[in-house]
Protein backbone atom coordinates (compact mmCIF):
# COMPACT_ATOMS: atom_id res chain seq x y z
CA UNK A 1 0.00 0.00 0.00
CA UNK A 2 2.55 2.58 1.11
CA UNK A 3 5.81 1.83 -0.61
CA UNK A 4 7.94 4.79 0.46
CA UNK A 5 8.34 3.65 4.07
CA UNK A 6 11.63 2.06 5.04
CA UNK A 7 11.87 -1.46 6.35
CA UNK A 8 12.11 -0.82 10.10
CA UNK A 9 10.76 -4.12 11.34
CA UNK A 10 12.23 -5.78 14.40
CA UNK A 11 13.74 -9.28 14.02
CA UNK A 12 10.65 -10.74 15.70
CA UNK A 13 8.38 -9.04 13.20
CA UNK A 14 10.51 -10.44 10.38
CA UNK A 15 10.09 -13.95 11.75
CA UNK A 16 6.37 -13.30 12.17
CA UNK A 17 6.13 -12.07 8.62
CA UNK A 18 7.85 -15.24 7.40
CA UNK A 19 5.11 -17.31 9.06
CA UNK A 20 2.37 -14.99 7.80
CA UNK A 21 3.70 -15.18 4.26
CA UNK A 22 3.77 -18.96 4.22
CA UNK A 23 0.36 -19.52 5.71
CA UNK A 24 -2.20 -17.34 3.98
CA UNK A 25 -5.77 -18.08 5.05
CA UNK A 26 -8.46 -16.39 3.05
CA UNK A 27 -12.00 -15.32 3.61
CA UNK A 28 -13.66 -15.17 0.24
CA UNK A 29 -16.18 -12.40 -0.07
CA UNK A 30 -17.78 -13.57 -3.26
CA UNK A 31 -21.11 -11.78 -3.49
CA UNK A 32 -20.17 -10.22 -6.81
CA UNK A 33 -19.06 -12.35 -9.72
CA UNK A 34 -15.83 -14.33 -9.81
CA UNK A 35 -16.51 -16.97 -7.18
CA UNK A 36 -16.39 -19.53 -9.96
CA UNK A 37 -12.67 -18.88 -10.46
CA UNK A 38 -11.85 -20.06 -6.93
CA UNK A 39 -12.72 -23.80 -7.10
CA UNK A 40 -10.24 -24.52 -9.94
CA UNK A 41 -7.61 -22.55 -8.04
CA UNK A 42 -8.21 -24.68 -4.98
CA UNK A 43 -8.53 -28.12 -6.56
CA UNK A 44 -6.16 -30.39 -8.41
CA UNK A 45 -5.53 -28.27 -11.52
CA UNK A 46 -3.85 -25.32 -9.79
CA UNK A 47 -3.72 -26.47 -6.14
CA UNK A 48 -3.17 -23.34 -4.09
CA UNK A 49 -2.43 -25.35 -0.92
CA UNK A 50 1.11 -25.74 -2.31
CA UNK A 51 1.74 -22.12 -1.30
CA UNK A 52 0.12 -22.60 2.11
CA UNK A 53 -3.08 -20.85 1.04
CA UNK A 54 -6.49 -22.07 2.03
CA UNK A 55 -10.09 -20.98 2.54
CA UNK A 56 -11.33 -20.36 6.07
CA UNK A 57 -14.89 -20.32 7.34
CA UNK A 58 -15.03 -17.00 9.20
CA UNK A 59 -13.30 -13.58 9.10
CA UNK A 60 -11.91 -14.15 12.61
CA UNK A 61 -9.78 -17.03 11.38
CA UNK A 62 -8.68 -15.43 8.13
CA UNK A 63 -5.67 -13.30 7.18
CA UNK A 64 -6.79 -12.16 3.76
CA UNK A 65 -10.13 -10.70 2.76
CA UNK A 66 -10.53 -11.54 -0.90
CA UNK A 67 -13.21 -9.39 -2.49
CA UNK A 68 -14.26 -10.65 -5.88
CA UNK A 69 -16.04 -8.54 -8.43
CA UNK A 70 -18.31 -5.56 -7.95
CA UNK A 71 -19.47 -4.39 -4.55
CA UNK A 72 -22.90 -2.89 -4.16
CA UNK A 73 -23.28 -0.16 -1.55
CA UNK A 74 -25.44 -2.55 0.44
CA UNK A 75 -22.76 -5.23 0.65
CA UNK A 76 -20.08 -2.63 1.39
CA UNK A 77 -21.42 -2.37 4.93
CA UNK A 78 -21.01 -6.14 5.41
CA UNK A 79 -17.54 -6.05 3.93
CA UNK A 80 -16.54 -3.38 6.42
CA UNK A 81 -18.04 -5.39 9.28
CA UNK A 82 -16.11 -8.45 8.10
CA UNK A 83 -12.88 -6.51 7.82
CA UNK A 84 -13.28 -5.04 11.29
CA UNK A 85 -13.74 -8.56 12.69
CA UNK A 86 -10.43 -9.79 11.33
CA UNK A 87 -7.32 -9.88 13.51
CA UNK A 88 -4.28 -7.94 12.39
CA UNK A 89 -2.03 -8.41 10.51
CA UNK A 90 -4.75 -8.58 7.89
CA UNK A 91 -4.67 -8.00 4.19
CA UNK A 92 -7.21 -7.11 1.54
CA UNK A 93 -7.02 -8.30 -2.04
CA UNK A 94 -9.23 -6.75 -4.69
CA UNK A 95 -10.08 -9.19 -7.43
CA UNK A 96 -11.28 -8.20 -10.89
CA UNK A 97 -11.66 -4.87 -12.66
CA UNK A 98 -14.72 -3.80 -10.71
CA UNK A 99 -12.74 -3.36 -7.50
CA UNK A 100 -10.16 -1.22 -9.33
CA UNK A 101 -12.38 1.35 -11.00
CA UNK A 102 -15.90 0.01 -11.19
CA UNK A 103 -15.35 -2.03 -14.36
CA UNK A 104 -18.45 -2.36 -16.50
CA UNK A 105 -20.57 -1.12 -13.61
CA UNK A 106 -18.71 2.22 -13.41
CA UNK A 107 -21.91 4.28 -13.85
CA UNK A 108 -24.22 2.18 -11.76
CA UNK A 109 -26.07 3.92 -8.93
CA UNK A 110 -25.85 0.84 -6.75
CA UNK A 111 -22.14 -0.05 -6.79
CA UNK A 112 -18.98 1.56 -5.49
CA UNK A 113 -16.20 2.28 -7.95
CA UNK A 114 -12.93 2.24 -6.06
CA UNK A 115 -12.50 -0.24 -3.25
CA UNK A 116 -9.41 1.43 -1.80
CA UNK A 117 -11.45 4.47 -0.82
CA UNK A 118 -13.11 2.31 1.83
CA UNK A 119 -10.65 -0.42 2.76
CA UNK A 120 -6.83 -0.53 2.52
CA UNK A 121 -6.25 -2.76 -0.51
CA UNK A 122 -2.81 -4.38 -0.52
CA UNK A 123 -3.02 -5.92 -3.95
CA UNK A 124 -5.28 -5.83 -6.98
CA UNK A 125 -5.67 -8.70 -9.39
CA UNK A 126 -6.95 -7.05 -12.57
CA UNK A 127 -8.96 -8.75 -15.27
CA UNK A 128 -12.53 -9.56 -16.10
CA UNK A 129 -12.35 -12.27 -14.90
CA UNK A 130 -8.78 -13.05 -13.79
CA UNK A 131 -8.08 -16.68 -14.57
CA UNK A 132 -6.63 -19.03 -11.93
CA UNK A 133 -3.14 -18.41 -13.35
CA UNK A 134 -3.57 -14.72 -12.62
CA UNK A 135 -4.83 -15.47 -9.12
CA UNK A 136 -1.86 -17.70 -8.37
CA UNK A 137 0.45 -15.06 -9.77
CA UNK A 138 -1.19 -12.35 -7.69
CA UNK A 139 -0.93 -14.37 -4.52
CA UNK A 140 2.70 -15.18 -5.20
CA UNK A 141 3.21 -11.42 -5.34
CA UNK A 142 1.24 -10.93 -2.10
CA UNK A 143 3.33 -13.57 -0.34
CA UNK A 144 6.46 -11.80 -1.52
CA UNK A 145 5.11 -8.47 -0.27
CA UNK A 146 4.27 -9.88 3.16
CA UNK A 147 7.73 -11.44 3.39
CA UNK A 148 9.37 -8.10 2.62
CA UNK A 149 7.04 -6.21 4.96
CA UNK A 150 5.48 -4.17 2.16
CA UNK A 151 1.88 -5.23 2.80
CA UNK A 152 1.15 -2.60 5.43
CA UNK A 153 -2.44 -1.81 4.53
CA UNK A 154 -3.79 -2.74 7.98
CA UNK A 155 -1.39 -0.30 9.61
CA UNK A 156 -2.35 2.40 7.10
CA UNK A 157 -5.99 1.79 8.00
CA UNK A 158 -5.25 2.30 11.70
CA UNK A 159 -3.29 5.49 11.04
CA UNK A 160 -5.76 7.02 8.57
CA UNK A 161 -8.95 5.73 10.12
CA UNK A 162 -10.68 9.15 9.99
CA UNK A 163 -10.28 9.36 6.23
CA UNK A 164 -11.57 5.84 5.62
CA UNK A 165 -14.43 6.34 8.06
CA UNK A 166 -15.52 9.51 6.29
CA UNK A 167 -15.51 7.79 2.90
CA UNK A 168 -17.42 4.84 4.27
CA UNK A 169 -20.11 7.05 5.79
CA UNK A 170 -20.38 9.16 2.62
CA UNK A 171 -20.95 6.07 0.54
CA UNK A 172 -23.39 4.41 2.91
CA UNK A 173 -25.46 7.57 3.20
CA UNK A 174 -27.97 8.13 5.94
CA UNK A 175 -28.49 5.10 8.12
CA UNK A 176 -32.05 4.66 9.29
CA UNK A 177 -32.38 2.21 12.12
CA UNK A 178 -35.83 1.08 13.07
CA UNK A 179 -35.58 0.23 16.74
CA UNK A 180 -38.85 -1.46 17.53
CA UNK A 181 -37.89 -2.27 21.14
CA UNK A 182 -37.68 1.38 22.19
CA UNK A 183 -40.61 2.89 20.41
Amino acid sequence: MVLDEKDNRSPWEKIGDYFSANSVWMKWYCTGCGAIEMPPTMTSRFDMERLGMGPMATPRQADVLLITGYLSTKTLRRVIYSYEQMNSPRYVVGFGSCTVNGGIYYDSYATINRLDMYLPVDLYIAGCMPRPEAIMNGFAKLIDMIKKGEARGWRHYQENYEWYKKNQLDSLGEVIIKDEFHE
Binding site: N22, S23, W25, G52, Q85, N87
Partner: peptide, 12 residues
Protein backbone atom coordinates in the same frame (compact mmCIF):
# COMPACT_ATOMS: atom_id res chain seq x y z
CA UNK B 1 3.73 -22.69 9.97
CA UNK B 2 -0.03 -22.44 10.45
CA UNK B 3 0.21 -22.80 14.23
CA UNK B 4 3.06 -20.31 14.61
CA UNK B 5 1.33 -17.88 12.25
CA UNK B 6 -1.82 -18.06 14.35
CA UNK B 7 0.19 -17.54 17.56
CA UNK B 8 1.76 -14.47 15.99
CA UNK B 9 -1.49 -12.68 15.20
CA UNK B 10 -3.53 -10.44 17.47
CA UNK B 11 -6.71 -11.95 18.78
CA UNK B 12 -10.11 -10.85 19.92
Amino acid sequence: LDIFKAMRKDST
